[in-house]
Design a protein around this nucleic acid. Structure first.
Length: 201
DNA sequence: GGTCGGATCATCT
DNA sequence: GATGATCCGACCG
């Protein structure tokens, strides 16, 4: 793992399959400056949804376009935010060509900066393992629905390349259909990137 | 330290 | 009117 992250996001979100995009987003950073407080984390867990007839996707062909999922059919690199179980917000990155209805759910971050802010929002640890916690730590709500992730207050930035042997693949979590598809990607073990030392909740 | 059920509401049928 | 791309606290062992 290189010591310095790539500054700019150099993952092709529009031109690849959502599964490839989910893999490539591992190691990239997410920066939130919501409420003027800067928070950064490294993506360590993702799930791919959508594409050719994925019944577990909010944009499944059986569902079609709705008010809720319209961002998934928009341009790549935007945020698709939805409410889960009436309680949590979840953050997705739209991928693929416009009209396809593909998105990558961000399930886990490795906290890098602004841990105090994350803890202040969460009130407890873990800070951003799991999609609901991740959105809460970043201050993500439906106010960011459709937001362009190239611009503040929520940006995707470059990161570290994750070697293939560090990438784990599994079925998706918490879905009742097509859960066996190997569309979940995660980084095995510690990432080994620099983090603030000595921080405690 | 592991399992179980309630919370809570936007969205779709 | 049913259903979750979840989380957390309570309870059990």
């Amino acid at each position: 793992m290189g010591s310095a992250p790539r500054e700019r996001l150099d993952v092709d979100l529009a031109g690849r399959s959502v599964v490839e995009a989910a893999r490539d987003l591992l190691g990239c950073r997410v920066e939130s400056t919501v409420d003027g407080r800067r928070v950064v984390g490294v993506i360590v867990e993702t799930e791919a949804y959508g594409g050719a007839d994925d019944p577990a996707s909010h944009a499944a062909t059986a569902v079609g376009r709705t008010d809720r999922n319209r961002a998934m059919f928009g341009p790549a690199g935007r945020a698709y935010v939805y409410r889960s179980y009436g309680v949590h917000w979840c953050l997705n990155v739209v991928t693929g060509p416009e009209g396809r209805g593909e998105a990558v759910l961000l399930r886990g971050l490795d906290p890098l900066e602004g841990l105090e802010t994350m803890h202040g929002r969460r009130g407890r640890t873990p800070l951003c393992a799991g999609p609901g916690r991740l959105a809460q730590a970043l201050g993500v709500t439906d106010a960011l629905y459709g937001h362009d992730l190239a611009a503040p207050p929520l940006r995707l930035l470059g990161g570290w390349s994750v070697p293939a042997e560090r990438v784990g693949v599994s079925g998706r979590v918490g879905v009742s259909s097509a859960s066996e598809r190997p569309h979940r990607f995660y980084v095995r073990g510690a990432l080994g990137v620099s983090r603030p030392d000595g921080w405690r909740p």
